[in-house]
Write a protein that binds this DNA or RNA. Structure first.
Lengths: 157, 157
DNA sequence: TTTTATGCAAAGTATTTGCACGGGA
DNA sequence: TCCCGTGCAAATACTTTGCATAAAA
């Protein structure tokens, strides 16, 4: 897989998202710098999972002087503010994507890394959680549900 | 969390499992050596997730000369033969546990790493998979469902 | 006897930390 | 001006590879 920005055709939304993230950073006492906003815009405008090096490569198109360390440090802050979330895949768990908080679950394209989110059927999962807890003696606190597949663009002709 | 073997009181079962794994290794052209069987027995007799270093520490109790590299190489073979599976947790995905193939899903104690497995309701998931696929245009090929909680032994008094 | 497995040491890879300098507020 | 953020380089953590020796078959 090659790194792609996957920029939405409606760039107004993603630019707004980047703006919102920058405000959140500022509100939390962090400064607004050029390298930081370039990294923020790169991630906020992508609907693909990106690992730190992919973010670095993409962001360097806009700001060649960027250092990989700054990418790591920015990812750390965005994750801390719950603006991005780490994505676990069979190949590893170094990639990040725009966070979708609440009871949303991720859907990942195995070919290109594009992600989509869906709201789970809360009843089904809750029933399953009770059953599983009862059988095992565990007190269930959390769950992960995610789907893998092939997105529309990656499906055959 | 400290590494624990979590050996079952009914050690007959787990000794059998280790024996079965050693036979599988042999059938696949791998030799039966002391370091290898010590590693195999360590993992096969544990119901906790274990990372390579934890396996190393536990196995060294039985065979002090063991090298960490042998642990890595044995884990590789056991994973390849689908006898163990990698476990993904918020903290990372370096840990392994006895594999439960088929439509079984994992339940992990956030405190001690003990695992249990449960069989999902295939109907419920299939329905959800169809819904999710339809909405997103993805062709769903696989899914992950896992629960986190506190096991019986780790719950308050 | 032949060939695989082992453990050490070295090399990779991924990520974090130390530090002097530059830029934001 | 003050002090946080940056990029480089070095350090660390984790995993894999090269190689001579030891052990299985």
């Amino acid at each position: 897989m090659t790194a792609q920005s996957g920029r939405s055709t409606d760039s107004f939304i993603t630019d707004n998202l980047a703006q919102e993230w920058l405000t959140r950073l500022k509100d939390n006492g962090y400064r607004l710098t050029t390298p930081r906003s370039v990294v923020v815009k790169t991630i906020a405008s992508s609907d693909h999972v990106l690992n730190p090096f992919e973010v670095f490569e993409l962001a360097r198109n806009d700001y060649p002087g960027l250092g990989l360390v700054t990418v790591y440090r920015t990812l750390e802050k965005l994750e801390e503010l719950n603006l991005i979330q780490r994505v676990h895949q069979p190949s590893g768990c170094q990639s990040f994507v725009v966070a979708h908080p609440g009871h949303q679950h991720i859907l990942i394209c195995e070919n290109c890394g594009r992600v989509d989110f869906f709201r789970e059927d809360p009843e089904g999962i809750n029933i399953l959680m009770k059953e599983v807890g009862g059988d095992s003696g565990f007190e269930i606190t959390n769950h992960w549900l995610q789907f893998f597949g092939i997105c529309n663009d990656c499906q055959g002709p």
